Simulated assay, not measured.
Amino acid sequence: MSNTFSDNDQIEVVSTFSELVNIHFQGAVNAICWHRNLMGDFKEIVSKLQLKENITEISTEDLLSLQLSENGNVAREVILNDLRLLSDLGASPSLNLLKNYERDDELDFISTDVYSYHVDRSPIGTNTFLCTYFGTASDILPNDQAVQKILVPEIREKLKELHDGPEAEFETFLKEYYFDLHYQPTADAKPINLGLGHLWKLAVDHPEQKVLPCIHRAPVENDNEYRLLLIC
């Protein structure tokens, strides 16, 4: 299959949903891509949806209520099918119309919002699925091109000042406030953009995980343009 992801050791590319869910992460692979060239007018769907908050969850009923052109209807069927496939798998997919996420600007030396490179953590064995249908798409980063922020000396020192407690409790403090989930790219890092229309499965940090979790971030949105994103 010819695509921009085939030559990357971190990514396995598949051509069906069945392969996406049944192939396991192994070795360096912590991102699996169901590579698709979607038909349909997703921009029309975005233009007819109502943004109620900066992140508005769109229900199946919301989608079905839209009056769409033929191309818009093709796009809607793609989204509905993705929601069905993931729901049948036992996942809880969420379709979001996004203006922007909340920014974390409380601390000037470390950011812990989704625009910062981070990994997802779960107490149970699970995966993150996501697909951007419209707008800017997320980035992932090879694990060897990122440094955990809590290991950067100047950041670590400031976190110790913030903690202001017993040394034995410092690591617990870092986890409790999710500081340990965030990474900064190395100087030579080459982020990989996930593109539009592809459905991705990303490795999550959990007790049974056999590979490194996938480092990813939300993109900065384009001005005056919403994102339409499926995630679970």
Rank of each mutant, 00 (worst) to 15 (best):
K99N: 15
K190L: 10
L51A: 15
A168H: 07
S69D: 02
K43F: 09
G135N: 05
A91Y: 10
P166Q: 12
N222I: 09
S18C: 11
A28Y: 08
N22F: 09
W34M: 10
D139F: 11
K160M: 13
L151P: 07
L51M: 11
L68Q: 01
L202M: 11
L85N: 10
L202T: 06
G165Y: 01
L85K: 11
F129R: 00
P185R: 04
Q26T: 15
Y226W: 10
I215F: 02
G197F: 08
S87L: 10
Q148Y: 04
L86N: 02
S2A: 12
D144I: 05
S138L: 07
I32E: 01
R36Y: 03
L38E: 08
I110M: 09
N143D: 13
Q184V: 13
I150L: 00
L212P: 04
P153M: 06
A91H: 10
V74C: 13
A75S: 04
N30T: 03
L228F: 02
E169V: 06
A203D: 01
L66C: 04
H182W: 03
N37D: 14
P153W: 00
R76V: 07
E12R: 12
E154N: 14
L98P: 08
K210Q: 14
E176H: 13
K149L: 14
D205K: 07
Y183M: 03
K52A: 14
F179N: 01
T112W: 01
L98R: 05
E221Y: 05
Y101E: 11
K175T: 12
H182M: 02
C214E: 05
G125Y: 02
L20A: 06
S47W: 03
D113I: 01
Y115W: 05
I55R: 14
F129Y: 15
A189C: 02
V114Q: 04
D9M: 10
L83R: 01
E167N: 12
A218C: 07
Q50R: 14
L162A: 06
F5R: 06
A187L: 13
G40D: 06
E44K: 01
D223I: 11
D188C: 02
Y117M: 02
Y101M: 12
L228Y: 00
N127Y: 15
D108Y: 08
Y226D: 00
L151C: 12
E61G: 06
I58P: 01
D188F: 03
H198F: 06
K160Y: 11
E61S: 15
E176C: 05
G27K: 09
N81Y: 10
L85Y: 00
F179D: 03
G90T: 07
N22W: 04
F179I: 00
P213S: 08
D205R: 08
Y226C: 09
L98D: 07
L66Y: 00
L68P: 00
P166R: 12
D7N: 14
L83Q: 03
H118D: 05
P185S: 09
T126E: 10
P207F: 01
D120M: 05
D88W: 00
D62Y: 07
E225Q: 15
L64D: 15
I79V: 12
K175I: 03
E70H: 13
K99A: 14
L66W: 07
G27C: 06
H216F: 06
E208L: 14
L159A: 08
I215S: 00
S116C: 13
L80N: 07
V220I: 14
N22L: 12
L80Q: 05
E154V: 12
V46W: 00
T186V: 12
Y115R: 07
D113S: 10
L159P: 05
S87W: 08
Q26D: 14
E225S: 13
H198T: 08
